[in-house]
């Protein structure tokens, strides 16, 4: 998305079209990747009635502070959140699709690992 540094003539009159010269946002900010883009962040929100943070999407930002701001602007517009976490995508270690079977298949038949054999009291929430 970033427009890189084409600077209009310094003496040019103020453009009536916004964005002409919009490269002013190119601060040469820290940590741009090879393509000149800001690093990617993953966004986690805790909803008003949610108990834990849930991944809702990603965004680009120059640093953590800006990432939080952008997350607020992009992902809480409809009153969704009461708490935001952002983390740089390259800081996340993820399981690989290639390892899917060794990772997850062994748990598929261990039904005794679910507490389905207990009677759950009515007055205990969030079990």
């Amino acid at each position: 998305m970033n427009t890189t540094g084409d600077t209009p003539d310094a003496g040019a009159a103020r453009a009536t079209t916004p964005g002409d010269g919009g490269a002013g946002a190119d601060t040469g900010a820290p940590a741009r990747d090879r393509r000149g883009e800001w690093p990617l962040y993953e966004v986690f929100l805790r909803g008003r009635r949610g108990l834990n943070h849930v991944h809702v999407g990603s965004l680009r930002a120059a640093d953590d502070t800006m990432a939080l701001r952008h997350a607020r602007d992009l992902y809480t517009r409809r009153n969704e959140g009461v708490s935001i976490w952002v983390v740089r995508s390259d800081a996340i270690a993820a399981s690989s699709p290639d390892e899917r079977d060794p990772f997850f298949a062994p748990s598929a038949d261990k039904v005794y690992r679910h507490p389905t054999f207990y009677a759950i009291p009515d007055d205990v929430p969030h079990l």
Binding site: N2, G19, G22, A25, R60
Partner: peptide
């Protein structure tokens, strides 16, 4: 459609 970044545009 003129902001320098998509995120800034939404802001």
């Amino acid at each position: 459609t003129h902001a320098p970044e998509l995120e800034e545009e939404v802001a």
